[in-house]
Design a protein around this nucleic acid. Sequence first.
DNA 1: CTCATTTGTTAGATTAGCCTAACTTTTATA
DNA 2: TATAAAAGTTAGGCTAATCTAACAAATGAG
Lengths: 234, 234
Amino acid sequence: MLSTTEENYLKALLQLTMEDGLKPEAGTNELATHLGVKPATANDMLKKLREKKLIHYEKYGKSSLTTQGRKLAIDVVRKHRLWETFLYEKLGFSWDEVHEVAEQLEHIQSQKLIDSIDRLLHYPTYDPHGDVIPTASGEMKMPYRKTLLEEEVGHTCKMVGVKDNSATFLRYVDQLGLSMHNHIRILAHQPYDNILEIEVNGKKASVGQRFAENIIIVCDDCERKPAPKKRRKN
Amino acid sequence: MLSTTEENYLKALLQLTMEDGLKPEAGTNELATHLGVKPATANDMLKKLREKKLIHYEKYGKSSLTTQGRKLAIDVVRKHRLWETFLYEKLGFSWDEVHEVAEQLEHIQSQKLIDSIDRLLHYPTYDPHGDVIPTASGEMKMPYRKTLLEEEVGHTCKMVGVKDNSATFLRYVDQLGLSMHNHIRILAHQPYDNILEIEVNGKKASVGQRFAENIIIVCDDCERKPAPKKRRKN
DNA sequence: CTCATTTGTTAGATTAGCCTAACTTTTATA
DNA sequence: TATAAAAGTTAGGCTAATCTAACAAATGAG
């Protein structure tokens, strides 16, 4: 059985090693910063998790999850996102309130509990922030995530997720009148300072780089690859 | 903010000081046993809780909750029982499964969460074991709890609760075909070894003292005091 | 290629919650 | 009421998770 702290380190490592760049390892300082602890603290934990065969790590090297560790990390993420969905769908929480409480709930140890929540919600695929909920068997598809910043001028796109789950950011999104699955038109993009002019629900707004990087979209106008047909075994 | 451990000590103290005898204080060893720790450990915590003005305690004396401490303890109990009810009503847990998970859930810190659960359940008054759920304002009525052992031969009574929430005990109750609000007839009572013969749902069974002490009943045949009219202030 | 900066590690301390062993106070019984 | 048993306390130690300060290795810029 893992401690809450150990679970948090695994989750952090998963998140850092599957960020956009798809870089497969994370540094000690990076991990420490992400978790809000000092590097020395993270260092101790890395050694401990290596002992438990949950991560690959060697002195002065980067860290990554073992198969075992990845499985456990995905399970924590699954619980987190199911709880977020529960709070949002069943209890009327707003999307900027769910993260904090889910940080606590994700550590409750009861397989039956999380399976029941999953059933109650009819096996949801996405959480309120548009993130994929891993399946009970530990599969977690990593969809390509294009951000608003990358969209071309003149195109319209649909918001399907956010990268930043902080209440501050999410409330700013709300404030702009933007919400999940809204369509956004890119009116202009000043390359010099990366300011975008966008139109949402008929209203214009200007947003900065940091904002645009944290909005995940699918392009309305782009070529769409046909969904690959599921091939049956033999 | 209290730690999970501190909350558990307060809850234990509340439970011990409102048991049947209504004795208003609990000893250090008693508390330690209840929590599964050594007396030395409990002693440290008692000093800490006194510092925080949550309990009355002095060297070599018994302990009891202050008004502040009682308020916090009742809040933990409220959360515990609401979660049990949630698990039972909404997720299909059996009554012997809810306690263990609720022990974890009761420590989640979010007023909004517990209020929402309360609303979702339509403000329940009793948990699946027949225990009173304290109100949001911290009121907790302590109903008179007569046990099966105290019932007279020939009378029938209704099971309205249990004292022991352990899975072992609850599964034994299930096994006898007995469940909440079932009627029980006392066929015989051997005073020598406190064995009761009872009839439940047309079936006879013999149960021992320990069992009978842990079933809470209301007498079908006894005089019932009329419910006292709520007197309005003025 | 060198050396300053960044990154990572080690050593030693702290706090919370737990323990054992030895001691002290209270209580209850002979 | 004396004293043994029960109840409670203290001292000292352990582990997990954190910190600071000092040190070591890797990196990258000139």
